[in-house]
Design a protein around this nucleic acid. Structure first.
Lengths: 238, 238, 238, 238
DNA sequence: TATGAATGAGCATTCATTCAT
DNA sequence: CATGAATGAATGCTCATTCAT
């Protein structure tokens, strides 16, 4: 109090605590939201896990919903810019890029607690419209845009067929989302092949997805169902 | 219609009501469980929607959990026997069988309210262990067994490659489950390509899945990741 | 149905059932009231144990309270006349009469389910005033009158000291009532010396009671506290 | 009063309230439990009588059962240590000690609301096994142990006959328990001699009990029924 | 800044009684 | 006579949010 601290951001122990509070609360909230879901998580428990009182939590976050939004921002929404940059600087075929994205996505989201947030949103979006709107704007749309840019890159380079992007985005994301949801619901309750080795599952999915997307001389035995109805997939689409 | 009553079991008006009650309650419960989820559905609302008092509901179902189980039995679990029989009498290639299954599954489950039950289970299994156990025994296991039998049929006939069944089951089911979950969560809140035409999405997924499964002379540019690790499916996989 | 029954009271099997109904209901009610108490006994259970429907019970007894009153009348209140007569025809000393009364009381009430009714009344009288009034008029008062007559007999014959009847009645009844209440509450939950041999307890109590009542030349080391305050029983009590 | 606060522990008005709350709730709960019994007492009413909301009650006591246990601890169970000490320091004959105990017991328990708890336990033990176990461990057993020690003291000093302790304990306690139960059930509903002057009743009972217990040269006209069957207390008892 | 005591609406389940058949 | 379907008021317990200190 009497002597000025060298670094103004973190002086006394108490002040350092004060600055750390939001982070500790967010970490505790992430844990509990992932474990119990949004509605079933009690703010008392979040505060207790962060080592503060319930009142203090409401000092930093005006409501349970705002607390959740902050968790989403810190763990997912706030990282899209970095990912977007990584995507732009990637060199190599778009097939390689897509495979790379699957892998890093698994490392950074799928295998971490962040995946629990996706599960939570799928579970409770109906009952909390305000959160859902926020999540769509901050996560879903940026995420789909990222995938769209990959697909366009492939199509512009002639590596992918001309496909209806709205469908293709879901084809690309479906296996990853399924993996997260399974892991945080049924997979948590029953012994399962996915439990220990999701990499194999991802590998198979990437192969299948790439097969559906890649430009091929002949269509083979399978119908080109990904094709945009108004934009036939034939060479003219390239 | 003119001579004898169609339903001989119901004489008086009251008896007809009594026989209809369970069905009316189950329908109301299905609607609300699908709309709100298990925890957020109030039994008062179920009773009100069925046109009876809260007490009457407990006359037919001893608890909210048992009510839910009855809904699951009527809409999903009770129909596996029929599906199993259809599977056995199918004639044609296993690829055609799989495509057929995707279609009828979409007609009977995916496009109906029954799909909401799957979404509900993925959402709330963590918080209601007793229901989860019931669902795994009555739905998940029989469903996976059905898929396993299809895959075995393909492998025994030489139509499919030798694959690790535990993974392949998930590869087959993932797109359908994703479709249900999306439809009942994000899809219900935002405009989406899947909303109106999921058939196209299904088509694309069937193609991809069949590509991964079908026996081919050469493996092409993609690694055969579906192969069982202990039972390599082809020399080139080594 | 076609031939008239010889005894008009019990003809066809159905009619015999009809006449037996109240008795079967009363027996079932006694069992359950004793086991659970008044409030905790459900009329559904009474009807079910009697083999009839809930509606039928209300056909014979207009309410749960009336059902209970009927149980009391059949098992206790209706038997005072007989006991009163037995008391009048007894020959022997009043001490012997009192001991005799303790024994037959134990046989007919204390050791039977009827004792459970006393326990029930002590337990729930506060919450059911109407029943309590009934019980006081039909059971408590007649019972106390019986004891009073015994005590008066002893005093008139010079066998007992002059005592305040209002207190003496309680002194006589207290051990028996205690025995019933213990048996149906704590005794039912914990191993206890009273459980198997209440006769010994009764013996001891009779001795003590008689000691306090009997006329004695000298009062011994103990104050004659039973004496009526206005009518000192002996000079030493002054 | 004017200078320093009497209670140094409570600073602000709020803190004083907080410290007083449990006591206020316990007092309100004691009143209502005694008046209505355990099952018939609504927690809302307890809270209202203490001047707080229902939620506040559950802030201090996690359930109705725990609230009741706390009431028992405060009013009975927590005072055995003090009583035990009083017993050890008593000087005089064991007959005097017993009479003394009856009197102080009446002052501290019998004449206070605490006696209502005993009545409650006798009434509802069957329906609430968990509470019953607690009560037996915390009240019944310590109470019986106290009586046992008095009886042993009398036997060791040669003042009392050799008796079966298991029965004698009940003989000693029966009159007091009867008094409590009567007062809180029938006595509360009908005019009664015990209502205003239980001391006289107690006096009579003490005399009778002491008569049964005290060592006497000859057994008199009454059988020594208190004697332990396997351990005859004196040659004359054979 | 931090606390934590207080609130009160919300919810699954029970049960005596009624009455149409 | 007999049924049993229907009712609806009653109750213990939870939890996000507020606010006095």
């Amino acid at each position: 109090m009497t002597t000025a601290p060298a670094t103004p951001s973190a002086g006394t122990k108490r002040e350092r605590r004060k600055e750390a509070r939001p982070g500790e609360l967010l970490e505790a909230a992430l844990d509990l939201f992932v474990e119990k879901g949004f509605a079933a998580t009690r703010v008392d428990d979040v505060a207790a896990r962060a080592g503060v009182s319930k009142g203090t939590l409401f000092l930093y976050f005006p409501s349970k919903e705002e607390l959740f939004k902050a968790v989403v921002r810190q763990n997912i929404a706030g990282r899209f810019e970095e990912w977007s940059h990584e995507l732009e600087t990637f060199e190599g075929t778009t097939g390689e890029l897509l495979r790379h994205c699957y892998l890093v996505w698994w490392e950074r989201i799928g295998a971490t607690k962040a995946s629990g947030i996706t599960k939570l949103m799928f579970s409770e979006s109906q009952n909390f419209p305000e959160i859902t709107v926020f999540y769509q704007q901050e996560v879903i749309r940026p995420g789909q845009d990222l995938v769209r840019r990959i697909l366009r890159r492939g199509m512009e380079r002639g590596e992918f067929r001309g496909v209806n992007l709205d469908y293709a985005v879901h084809v690309v994301m479906a296996p990853m989302i399924f993996l997260m949801l399974w892991k945080h619901s049924m997979g948590a309750c029953m012994p399962d092949a996915l439990e220990l080795g999701p990499e194999k599952f991802i590998d198979a999915q990437v192969d299948n997805v790439l097969y559906g997307l890649c430009a091929r001389p002949e269509t083979g035995p399978f119908a080109p169902a990904l094709s945009s109805p108004s934009l036939p997939s034939s060479p003219s689409a390239v």
